[in-house]
């Protein structure tokens, strides 16, 4: 390893961990200089997290958020070239640190999904008539093998709390927010409408179906899973209703068949 590589490795180790001893022989001036870099590192990254997770910070309060952000930087030090990804896995950090308040991780997930959708690849949604034209002559086998490519940035997550209400309250200044559990488990669905990330709460069945499609599942696999839950008789009609809803929301970008 070159002298420069060694110096940089040593410098970064000091930056990431206050407990790492500074190089031997460094005078007080250099020690003070390193303190500036250490402070700048933490401040910049915590500020980046606060900017992305504004509502999460409001939900838990400033002190708790700072502690969570500092913990996240220790357990997930940045590796990529863009500071925009500092919040990667912060929702998981929140799930671990606020295990008794699962709504915190749900809000953090939503903010992260919004952050990612904001700069996702631009795409035109498929309108209902074009989808109908594309699938008009489909055989049953083609419907089985159909995969729906969803608009970039689309994400779903199982949730237990009323994120719609919580989101609105956290955007205003009425505190402390009242966290309400949903009457039954549901999903949050997030996508980008034009330039704007938007979300809505959807039933569990709809959310599971979308999660399957997002992970590469086929329409046939989705229908089979539905049939197991609600029976074959209702499955086809339910799948059709959900599909029409997704098209009307502008979630579907393209159809793909093998």
């Amino acid at each position: 390893m070159s002298a420069l590589a060694l110096r940089q490795q040593e410098f970064l180790a000091c930056l990431l961990d206050d407990a790492t001893p500074l190089p031997a022989g460094w005078d007080t001036r250099r020690v003070a200089g390193m303190a500036v870099y250490r402070n700048a590192y933490r401040t910049r990254l915590i500020d980046a997290l606060r900017e992305t997770f504004e509502r999460t910070a409001r939900l838990v309060g400033e002190d708790a958020f700072r502690r969570a952000a500092a913990h996240h930087l220790i357990t997930n030090p940045p590796t990529g070239w863009t500071i925009d990804l500092t919040g990667e896995r912060f929702a998981e950090t929140c799930a671990e640190l606020f295990a008794h308040d699962p709504d915190v991780a749900e809000v953090a997930w939503l903010e992260w999904a919004m952050h990612r959708a904001f700069t996702a690849t631009d795409a035109e949604p498929l309108i209902v008539s074009r989808f109908a034209a594309a699938t008009a002559g489909f055989s049953p086998a083609q419907w089985e093998a159909l995969r729906l490519r969803l608009i970039p940035g689309t994400a779903v997550r199982a949730i237990a709390h009323d994120l719609a209400k919580l989101w609105e309250v956290l955007g205003a200044s009425s505190f402390p927010p009242q966290v309400e559990r949903l009457p039954r488990p549901g999903y949050a669905l997030l996508w980008r409408e034009g330039e704007r990330p938007v979300f809505m709460l959807i039933p569990e069945q709809n959310g599971r179906a979308l999660a399957g499609l997002l992970s590469g599942g086929t329409f046939g696999e989705m229908c089979a899973a539905l049939a197991e839950t609600i029976g074959p008789a209702k499955a086809a009609a339910s799948a059709g209703t959900m599909l029409l809803g997704w098209l009307e929301l502008g979630l579907v970008q393209a159809t793909e068949t093998e």
Binding site: S2, A3, L4, A5, R7, Q8, Q9, F11, L12, L15, L16, Y37, A40, Y41, R44, L45, A48, P77, P78, T79, G80, W81, I83, T86
Partner: peptide, 22 residues
Amino acid sequence: RTSAHNSHDLLPLPLTRGALGV
């Protein structure tokens, strides 16, 4: 950055012939 981590800060270089070459 190093190969492992990124500081997202503009860190100082030793002003050496070796660093200049890099």
